[in-house]
């Protein structure tokens, strides 16, 4: 006995819709990729179309030499402070970047000794600096006092 084969009749009304459906799916395949590319959360605005997004590995900034061992220990201590102590102790720094973030930036930029000096300077000059620094909206309103505001007279960026 011949086995039963399932086949759509040549005049089936389903054949064209199925084919059209597959065709539509194939046409729509590239859309998710291009959609994601166009709507890259502000990283890929129309002005920059055709350029490599800044967040891609190709456009990553050149990594400088890492901090020395003393600076690394200090950075670890600062991370411990901001992630453990400061969370319990409360956020009291009115500046941006916050004092611990500023200290980390200063140590990364200028090393252990100058980093400590600039951190002490930040803590000392905080009261008066609030009268001159512009106000920025970070997680809340803060006074903007970056590392560049305090090393402009000697550091070459």
């Amino acid at each position: 006995m011949e086995p039963h084969r399932f086949a759509l009749p040549s005049t089936s009304p389903f054949r064209i819709p199925i084919f059209a459906g597959i065709l539509c799916l194939l046409l729509l395949l590239p859309l998710p990729g291009s959609g994601a590319r166009a709507a890259g959360g502000g990283e890929f605005p129309p002005w920059d179309f055709g350029k490599t997004p800044a967040s891609s590995p190709a456009a990553a900034p050149e990594v400088r030499d890492g901090p020395g061992p003393a600076a690394r220990i200090l950075l670890a201590g600062l991370s411990f402070f901001s992630e453990s102590i400061s969370r319990v102790d409360g956020d009291r720094c009115p500046m941006y970047p916050t004092c611990s973030a500023y200290s980390r930036q200063a140590v990364r930029k200028h090393g252990f000794f100058l980093g400590i000096m600039m951190t002490a300077d930040r803590l000392i000059h905080e009261p008066t600096e609030m009268a001159y620094a512009p106000v920025v909206l970070a997680d809340r309103l803060r006074y903007y006092d970056p590392v560049e505001n305090n090393d402009f007279w000697w550091a070459k960026d």
Partner: peptide, 21 residues
């Protein structure tokens, strides 16, 4: 020592900031 050197750095920096302002 950190506070002392920071105090000197801060004073010099304040003078530069004053002139800039």
């Amino acid at each position: 020592l950190g506070w002392y050197t920071g105090n000197i750095y801060s004073a010099v920096s304040s003078a530069h900031k004053y002139n800039r302002r």
